[in-house]
Design a protein around this nucleic acid. Structure first.
Length: 560
RNA sequence: GCGCCCGUAGCUCAACGGAUAGAGUACUUGUCUUCGGAACAAGUGAUAUGGGUUCGAUUCCUGUCGGGCGCACCA
């Protein structure tokens, strides 16, 4: 419809001999101002320096000659907007469409089947799966789902942190204070490993030589020293077991590739050569780094250390080069990583452009902010990590006060929604009351609304009432109908911006309009159940909200 | 010190350069003995600050203040 209106306006402008105008057609926030609205008159009046009101009238008159049948009327309002009001039948049509397309409703083609790789989650081996990784996991999963829904060919990539100096340190700690055999029977080996790692840092403060020892063991690992490799592999197997358990619980386990950094370890030579061939690298204080043309804007990027061993940046460049070879030159890559690495990614993107690997359009750093805590209860003290399990368990236990049968779905959904409902680059103030609240802007509220709709439909089915999309007199323009109609457009925008937040906020508005539509339960009386069109809206609502929740990775239990 | 990000009701968040800046929560009030009342409705309450661009600025540019993050051998 939007496109149709744009076309008509183009035509009208042509008739009026006005060319090249950059106008827009949008939904007014307040639907008193119509279903669609255009600023075309204001924009034209400016560039043509003519009287706004006269022009608006002229355009309006011309428009009225060309209106499609779904448009009821056109009006000039406010500072010069031209507003379009649609007939109820238009919205009833989209209800029909929703009932027909079901889980496909909202799909769009903006991806045009192109490949896009989303790197997310990426926990570190032998480290806790923290709430920081949780954010990346939740956002990455949702963005992947949204892109897939929008006809992208999505490659979900879990880039495990399984390489780096930290493993040298880990090996030193295990050898000094740990016991490999005991680890084998340890019920929670990761906790033990983390304790050892913390101990390493404590000891290293008193005794800095330990750091050198750690670097040396990492160097041995890079040279495939058998003892180092054996210990390293043990760490991986303990961690992977733990990660799989967590992904299972979060219902996020459809990664296409789980290649750790170590996978790219033997491919780094090529990249080093590229850097040398293009003359981009320079030595400084024994280390090897890339300097950027404008040094005031971008700090140099270190590639290898003075002992020759690799750094994160080299492994990342190698990873991306491999991806290009594997998935094609025109692939886009999204890294879902915290905001603290913003500058680092700028360096990487610049380097990849200079190396001729990718253009900047192909590289996206989707950054997320930190978790912060309102009450000091779960704040991080030094050396005290927040374990993801503790957070999930608390969420589930709080959700069980709502309904114990589906507390797992509700608790986890609540955490996911809390993460996805806001702009991801901003920090999250973690507040349990906000997260679990059944009435607020929360996951449970959406799930509740869905269950309510399902229950109404169930009841109607028992009473043998059929759903029909014929619009009764005076219907077809309620808030909930209008919002249902907008779902595809919201999905599209959310895919363009990689922003699940837009779907999340839309769903809240939709659920609220639905609950307002039914009012308090007293109003859901016989009349409602015998109104086949009202049931059609209910059914459409249940479909859309379920599709939306799916895109956020949140389950929709039918009973709550 | 330099760079990036953020300052919107008491609190947590919205608003594709557009119309009277929306929600939730908290607080006040009303519907009211529940086929889902953990509901619905009403009310109080905000763009940190100075300048600029624009027909129009929470949004863009710029100064100030406040907060977060990053800045060479970690990832």
């Amino acid at each position: 419809m939007k496109e149709e209106i744009e076309k008509i306006i183009q035509k009208v402008l042509k008739n009026l001999d006005i060319n090249e105008v950059d106008f827009s057609v949008e939904h007014p926030d307040d639907n008193k101002n119509g279903d669609y609205s255009t600023n075309v008159a204001m924009v034209c009046a400016k560039s043509l320096k003519i009287n706004l009101k006269e022009l608006a009238e002229k355009i309006k008159n011309e428009l009225e000659k060309n209106l499609p049948k779904e448009i009821k009327k056109v009006e000039i309002a406010g500072p010069g907007f031209i507003n379009f009001y649609l007939l109820g039948e238009f919205f009833a049509e989209s209800i029909k469409e929703i009932l027909k397309e079901k889980e496909d409703f909202g799909k769009n083609k903006i991806g045009k089947g192109k490949k896009i790789l989303v790197e997310y989650s990426s926990p570190n081996i032998a480290k806790p799966f923290t709430i920081g990784h949780l954010r990346s996991t939740i956002i990455g999963d949702s963005v992947s789902k949204i892109l897939e829904f929008s006809d992208y060919k999505v490659i979900r990539d879990n880039h495990l942190g399984d390489w780096g100096t930290q493993f040298g340190k880990m090996i030193v700690a295990i050898k000094k204070w740990g016991n490999l055999d005991a680890l084998e029977n340890d019920p929670s080996p990761i906790k033990t490993l983390v304790d050892l790692y913390v101990k390493f840092h404590d000891e290293a403060e008193k005794n800095p030589e330990l750091e050198d020892e750690g670097r040396e063991w990492f160097s041995r690992l890079e040279k495939k020293d058998s003892e180092a490799v054996a210990i390293w592999q043990k760490c991986i197997s303990y961690s992977m077991k733990e990660f799989h358990r967590i992904y299972e619980r979060l219902d996020i386990n459809d990664f296409d590739t789980i290649n750790g950094e170590s996978f790219y370890e033997n491919k780094m030579g090529e990249v080093l050569e590229d850097i040398k061939n293009k003359n981009l690298g320079k030595e400084s204080e024994g280390a090897f780094l890339i300097f950027f043309p404008d040094e005031t804007k971008l700090n140099p990027l270190m590639i290898t250390k003075k002992d020759g061993s690799s750094l994160y940046a080299l492994r990342d460049l190698t990873t991306d080069k491999w991806r290009k070879k594997e998935y094609g030159d025109d692939i886009k890559i999204i890294n879902e990583v915290g905001t603290e690495q913003s500058e680092y990614f700028k360096q990487i993107f610049e380097a990849e452009e200079m190396l001729g690997y990718f253009t900047k359009e192909q590289r996206i750093h989707l950054a997320h902010g930190l978790y912060r805590f309102k009450d000091g209860k779960m704040s991080t003290r030094k050396g005290n990590v927040i374990w993801l399990d503790d957070i999930i368990n608390e969420a589930v236990s709080r959700a069980s006060t709502i309904n114990s049968d589906v507390s797992e779905e509700v608790g986890i959904g609540a955490i996911k929604f809390n993460d996805l409902k806001r702009e991801s680059k901003k920090d999250i103030i973690f507040d349990w009351e906000e997260i679990i609240n059944l009435n607020g802007d929360s996951g449970p509220y959406l799930q509740y609304s869905y269950a309510r709709a399902k229950s109404i439909l169930e009841k109607a089915k028992d009473e043998n009432i059929k759903i029909e999309t014929t619009v009764p007199e005076g219907w077809g323009t309620t808030e909930v109908e209008k919002l249902l109609n907008r779902f595809p457009e919201i999905v599209m925008r959310s895919a363009e911006d990689f922003a699940p937040q837009q779907i999340a906020n839309y769903l809240i508005n939709l659920a609220r309009s639905f609950n307002t539509f039914y009012g308090n339960t007293k109003i859901v009386d016989k009349d409602d159940l015998t109104s086949p069109y009202k049931l059609a809206i209910t059914e459409a609502f249940s479909i859309v909200i379920k599709n939306g929740l799916n895109l956020l990775g949140i389950k929709s239990p039918e009973k709550m």
